[in-house]
C-alpha cells in the first residue's frame, strides 16, 4: 500500500517536474523565437520587460490571462471551449514517454527517469499527433467563421497527409531498435545514434514533423495574409494562449523526439544525461526558428506534392532498404 502511495507520489513529482520544465521551456522558447527572428530581420526584439526582455514571457502570459475570453455568436460552445485544450494537452502528453535519463537509484530502488515507460511508446507518440489534428479541426469548425473553417480544413488535410511519412520514417528506427518503447530505442543507440544509420529517415522525419507542427513554411492553416489567423482566428485571451503554448510545447517535444529517435537520447559523454537531452532537444527548435526566418510559405499543391509524391515513397523505399540490409547483414 505504502509502496503504491510512494509510487503515486513519485509519479506526481515527475509529472510536476516535467510540466514545469516544459512550460518554462516553451515560454522562453517564445522569447527566443522573437529575439532570434528579430535579429534575423535586423531588429532588436522584445527588450523592455526586464533586462534583455527576460520578463517578456511573463508579461505575455499576464496579458493573455487578463484579456477578455470571447466566444463568437453562433459558435459551437462546448467544442469551441475544449478545442484549444486538446491541442495543448496532446503536445504535453508526449513528454509522458520521453526518457530523460537512465534510471536513478533512490532509497535503494531504481527510479526510471521517465514518467511512463510504455512498451508501445512510439505508437503512443504517433497516436497523440493524430489526436492533435482534432484540436485544429474542431477549433476551426466550432468558431463558426469561414476563415477558421478554411484554416481547419487545410490543417486537417495537411496533418493527415504528413502523418503517413512521419510514421513510415520511424519504421526503420523500430526495426533497428527492435522495440516500440522509447527507453529501449534510446538504449539501442548506445553505440551509435540512428542518425548515422538512418540519415534518410531522419530527414523525412524532420520535414514531416515540421509540417505536423504547422510552422513556416508549412503554416497554411493559419496563413495570416489569407486567413487572418486560420483556425484560431476567433480565439482570444488564454484560449488563444493554449494554442500558442501548444505550438511551442510541440516544438520542444519535437526536439525531444528527434533526440530520442535519432540523436541517442540522453546519452553523451561528460555532461549529465538530462542536460544532454535538453541540449539535443534544443537544437530542433532553433533550427525551426531559422527555417521560419528563411523560407517562404509553400503553396498548397506543393505541400501535398511533397507529402504524397516525395516523402511517402521515400519512406517506403527506406523501409525496404533497411529491411533488405538487415536481412543481408543478419
Amino acid at each position: 500500500m505504502s509502496l503504491w502511495l510512494a509510487g503515486l507520489a513519485l509519479l506526481l513529482v515527475k509529472i510536476g517536474l516535467v510540466l514545469f520544465v516544459v512550460l518554462t521551456g516553451a515560454a522562453y522558447l517564445v522569447l527566443a523565437e522573437r529575439k532570434l527572428l528579430a535579429r534575423f530581420q535586423l531588429r532588436l526584439g522584445p527588450n523592455r520587460a526586464g533586462p534583455l526582455g527576460i520578463w517578456q514571457p511573463l508579461a505575455d502570459a499576464l496579458k493573455l490571462l487578463m484579456k477578455e475570453d470571447t466566444v463568437p455568436a453562433g459558435a459551437d460552445r462546448p467544442l469551441f471551449l475544449a478545442a484549444p485544450a486538446m491541442s495543448a494537452a496532446t503536445a504535453m502528453l508526449i513528454f509522458a514517454v520521453v526518457p530523460f535519463g537512465d534510471s536513478l537509484t533512490i532509497a535503494g530502488r531504481p527510479v526510471p527517469l521517465v514518467v511512463a515507460d510504455v512498451s508501445v511508446g512510439l505508437l503512443f507518440v504517433l497516436a497523440l499527433s493524430s489526436i492533435g489534428v482534432y484540436g485544429v479541426v474542431l477549433g476551426g469548425w466550432a468558431s463558426n467563421s469561414s476563415f477558421s473553417l478554411l484554416g481547419a480544413i487545410r490543417g486537417g488535410a495537411q496533418m493527415i497527409s504528413y502523418e503517413l511519412p512521419l510514421a513510415l520514417s520511424l519504421a526503420p528506427v523500430v526495426m533497428l531498435a527492435g522495440s516500440f518503447s522509447l527507453v529501449d530505442i534510446v538504449s539501442a543507440q548506445a553505440g551509435c545514434p540512428f542518425i548515422v544509420k538512418q540519415p534518410a529517415a531522419f530527414l523525412i522525419f524532420c520535414v514531416s514533423a515540421l509540417a505536423e507542427s504547422k510552422r513556416l513554411p508549412f503554416d497554411l492553416p493559419e496563413a495570416e495574409n489569407e486567413l487572418m489567423a486560420g483556425y484560431h482566428t476567433e480565439y482570444s485571451g488564454m484560449r488563444f494562449g493554449l494554442y500558442f503554448v501548444g505550438e511551442y510545447v510541440n516544438m520542444i517535444a519535437l526536439g525531444c523526439l528527434v533526440a530520442v529517435f535519432f540523436l541517442g537520447g540522453w546519452r553523451g559523454p561528460l555532461l549529465p544525461p538530462f542536460v544532454w537531452l535538453m541540449l539535443k532537444a534544443a537544437l530542433v527548435p532553433l533550427v525551426l526558428i531559422w527555417v521560419r526566418a528563411t523560407l517562404p510559405r509553400l503553396r498548397f499543391d506543393q505541400l501535398m506534392h511533397s507529402s504524397w509524391k516525395v516523402l511517402t515513397p521515400l519512406a517506403l523505399a527506406n523501409i525496404l532498404v533497411t529491411g533488405g540490409l538487415m536481412a543481408a547483414l543478419g
Binding site: 532570434l36 530581420q41 535586423l42 531559422w290 526566418a293 528563411t294
Partner: peptide
C-alpha cells in the same frame, strides 16, 4: 539569414 543574425540591428 544566418549572416543577418550577426549584422547590427537597425532598430
Amino acid at each position: 539569414t544566418l549572416g543577418m543574425l550577426f549584422t547590427r540591428p537597425i532598430t
